[in-house]
Structures are given as C-alpha cells and as structure tokens.
Computed example of a mutant assay.
Amino acid sequence: MEKIIQITSGRGPAECSWVVAQVLKVFLEEAADHKIKTTLLQRETGIENGTVETATILLESNDMSGFINSWIGTIQWIGQSQFRKFHKRKNWFIGIFEIDKAKSTQISENDIQYQAMRSSGAGGQHVNKVSSAIRATHVPTGISVVSMDSRSQHQNKKLATERLLQKFKEETVKQFKTAFQAQWMNQLQIQRGNPVRVFQGSDFKKQKQIKNYKQERQRLKREDYFDRDSS
C-alpha cells in the first residue's frame, strides 16, 4: 500500500513553517517506529533558517491506516514565536493532508493494443486495398492515436507508438497540474479547530492527555451500584 502525505503551513507565517519542520521530524521518526517506509518527495524551505513551508512524503506499508488517521488534520503548537520575541500569539496551526497519488508515468508495451486499418485519402488503389494504417491504444487509459503516414504498416506502427507516448506524456502533465492545484487548495484549507495533535514548548513535546482517574472510579462505582440494585 502506498499513500502520499502533505505537511503544510498554508499561508501561515514563519512560525508555522518552523512547526512544519518540527512535525516533519516527528512524523518521520514515528513512521520508522511503525516500520513504515518513507520517501521525501518534495520539501519547500521557508524564508527563515530551519523552516519548511511544505513537505510531501510517500509512505509504503502493508498496514498504516491507523498511523495516517492519527496525523491527518490540523496540528497545533503552543509556544513563543522563535522569530518575533515580543509577539503575543502563542497558538500556531499547520495542516496534514492525504493527496491523490499520480498515475504511472510509464507505458508498458503489454498495455498497448494495435489495430490495422485501411488508410483513407489520396493514394490510389493501394490505399483502398491494403490495411497499412495503424491505431495504437493504451488500454488502461483508453488513449488512442492513428498513423497512416506511410504505406508501410511497420513504419506506421512505429509512428503510432511514438505519438501515443507523446500524448500519454501530455496527459500526465495535466494530471500533475491537477495534483498541484489540489495541494495548493490544501494549503488554503487549514482549520484551527479540533487539532488531532497538540505540541508545546521550544522542545516540541507532545501534549499529554490528562485523565481524571478519580472521576472515572466514581463513574464505575455508580454503574456497579445501579447494576446490583436492578438485579
């Protein structure tokens, strides 16, 4: 299984880019602990030293849904600005998103289907009687081209293959543009409510979830009391 994750500061200030850099470190370390293979596909550094505006990571593992779900969403850091000493703001937010994996950029010969056809247009009797034109189709995507430039079926097959590869590349570029647009929208959609993780301080410690065990014991006692009373 493969997943692509984006960590981004959106349009946030340098402080948010610093948070992205810290989260990226923690994210990669935790992924390694879960035996998840990671490949850093892209990292855009921020204007300040040690900051990252956006990072895109490829994850590979048989089972990583729990890990990913624990990270997807808004990440909050509580701390003093590293770059503006007297800045009053203490809460900073970044986003982590899953983005669509681009389709393969390579064509396998086994995926190309060739079909001989009769050529049309000028050319005399030869055009009408010999099936020299070739249609090449990339079966997985349905992309198709036709070559009837030559009287040689072999030459037309070669030309059709070249045109199919070119058309496939053009479609791939369109996909990359669409994926880039989706990433940009992710950068604009960072929400500050309900963070999935909260870190604090210059040492970037994860905020612990404090449980009130006294209240929990009281709740269990009440349930036990009502169970005995009803029986």
Rank of each mutant, 00 (worst) to 15 (best):
Q175M: 07
F176W: 10
F176I: 12
L159D: 07
L220D: 08
R219F: 08
V173R: 02
Q218T: 06
R217V: 10
R163T: 03
K169F: 01
A179M: 09
Y213G: 04
R219S: 13
M185E: 15
D203T: 14
Q207I: 08
K177F: 02
E170T: 01
E171C: 00
Q187R: 11
R217D: 13
Q200L: 09
Q200K: 10
K158C: 00
K214L: 09
Q189N: 15
D229Y: 12
D203W: 08
L188M: 12
R197I: 03
A182N: 03
K208I: 13
K158T: 06
L188R: 14
F180M: 08
L164W: 03
K206C: 13
K221N: 08
F204A: 07
K205R: 10
N212F: 07
I190V: 08
K221T: 07
Q181Y: 08
E216S: 09
E170D: 12
Q189K: 14
F180C: 06
Q209H: 12
R228Q: 14
Q191N: 12
F180R: 13
I190D: 07
I210D: 11
N212I: 04
E223M: 09
R228G: 00
K206V: 13
Q189L: 14
N212V: 06
K211F: 11
Q209L: 13
K169Y: 02
Y225N: 11
G193V: 09
W184M: 15
L165M: 05
D224A: 14
F226H: 11
Q215M: 13
